[in-house]
Design a protein around this nucleic acid. Structure first.
Lengths: 205, 205
DNA sequence: GTCTATAAATAGATAGAC
DNA sequence: GTCTATCTATTTATAGAC
C-alpha cells in the first residue's frame, strides 16, 4: 500500500485512480480512432477536459499514455479469458477469444500502435504489468492451441507460435474496416465472416 | 506527348523521369520501413541525395509522394498479373498473387499507409492512375475469385468482396514481421505458413 | 531545377503561479 | 494537482539566388 489505513487518504487515492482511468479511457479511444502517431497529447487533454500540464503530472510521456492503454486492454483481455467456460473444447475457447477481439475492434476500443516505433517499444517492454499480462495471455492461449492440435481440431502441422501470432493479428485486421465501409454487412456478419476465414480459410471444405 | 519529336527534349524528359523514379523508390522503401507518419520529407531528400526544395519541385506535398509510391506498387502488381500463366486454375492464380504480395512485404518494398488519414486519402483518390489501377486489379482478381468459387475451389458462401479484402489485407499482415522476429523460420517458410493459414485456415482438414 | 536559408505551424514537454 | 504561458525541437512547405 502507498498509504496507511484510513478513510481520507483512500478517498484521495480513489479520486486519483478515477481521473487516471478517465484519461486512459480517452487515450484508448483515440488510439483506436487515429493510431499512435496521429494522436496528439493536446487532443487527449481536451478530450479528458484537463490541461496538458496536468496530464503530464499523471503520465510522464505520450509513450507512457499508450502503454497505459495497452495495459488496460490486457487486463480486459485477461478478464475475458477468466470468464470463458472451462468446459468448452480448446478450439471453441480460441474462437471465443478471437470473436471478442473482433468485437472490441469494431466497437472502436482496440488501440492500434506502430510496431516499428522504438521509443514506444521501450515504454511497453518497460511496463512490468504489460509484459506480465501479455506473457500470461500468451501462455494460456498457447496451452489451448496445443490442446486443440492434440485433439485434431487445429492443424497440427502449424507451429503453435504461428497460430498465436495469427490470432493476435486478427485484432488489427483491416478487413473489418473495409467490410464496414462497404456497408453491405452488419457488424455481426462481419465478425462471422472474419472468424470463418480465419479458422476455416478461404478454400472450400 | 508533352514534347515534340526530337532527341534533346526526349533525353531531358528521360532524365526527369529517372530522377523521379529514384525519388519514388526511396519513398517506397521508407514507407515500408517506417510508415507514412514516421517518414519525414527530410529523410526522403537525404535518401535521394537532393535538397528538400528540389523534392518539392517534383512532388507538391508529402501526400503526393506517398501516392506516387502507391501508383508504383500498383503498376508493379499489374505487371505481375500480366505475367501469370493464363492456363493456371483461378485458385492458383490467386495464390500466386498473394505469394507475390507476401514476398514484396518481406523484401521491405510494401508501403504501409494509415487508412484513416483524410488528406492522404484525398491524394490517393485524386490520383487517376492509382484509382484506375486499383480498380482494374480488383476487377481481375474478382473474376478469378468468382471463377474459383464456381469451380468449387474457393468457399462459395463467402461474398467475393470479402475474399478480395482478405487477400488485400495479407499485404500488410503483421504476422510476417512477428514470425521473422521470432527467428525460427526462413522467409520462404514464413510465406508458406501465411499462405496456408490464409487459404486453408487454422483448423484441420 | 538545384541549392541555402527561412518561414509557419505543430508537437511533445516544462516553468512557475496558485 | 491544476492551471496559463512558454520552451524547444521538429516538420511541412517556400522564398529567392544561381
Amino acid at each position: 500500500m502507498s498509504t496507511a489505513a484510513g478513510a481520507k487518504p483512500s478517498f484521495k487515492e480513489q479520486m486519483l485512480q478515477a481521473r487516471e482511468e478517465a484519461i486512459v479511457k480517452s487515450v484508448n479511444r483515440l488510439l483506436a480512432e487515429k493510431g499512435f502517431d496521429a494522436m496528439t497529447v493536446d487532443e487527449v487533454a481536451a478530450s479528458v477536459g484537463i490541461a496538458k500540464a496536468s496530464l503530464y503530472k499523471h503520465f510522464p510521456s505520450k509513450e507512457d499514455l499508450a502503454a497505459a492503454a495497452m495495459v488496460r486492454v490486457m487486463r480486459s483481455a485477461r478478464e475475458f479469458l477468466d470468464g470463458i467456460d472451462a468446459g468448452l473444447p480448446p478450439l471453441e475457447k480460441l474462437r471465443a477469444v478471437v470473436r471478442w477481439t473482433l468485437q472490441v475492434q469494431l466497437a472502436g476500443q482496440m488501440p492500434s500502435l506502430p510496431t516499428q516505433n522504438s521509443s514506444l517499444r521501450a515504454a511497453l517492454t518497460g511496463s512490468r504489468e504489460y509484459v506480465d499480462a501479455l506473457m500470461e495471455i500468451s501462455v494460456r492461449l498457447g496451452a489451448w492451441i496445443e490442446a486443440a492440435q492434440a485433439a485434431g481440431a487445429l492443424n497440427p502441422k502449424l507451429p503453435p507460435i504461428a497460430v498465436l501470432y495469427t490470432l493476435y493479428a486478427r485484432g488489427c485486421d483491416p478487413v473489418l474496416e473495409f467490410l464496414r465501409g462497404g456497408g453491405q454487412h452488419t457488424d455481426d456478419e462481419i465478425v462471422d465472416l472474419v472468424l470463418s476465414t480465419c479458422f476455416d480459410g478461404l478454400n472450400s471444405r
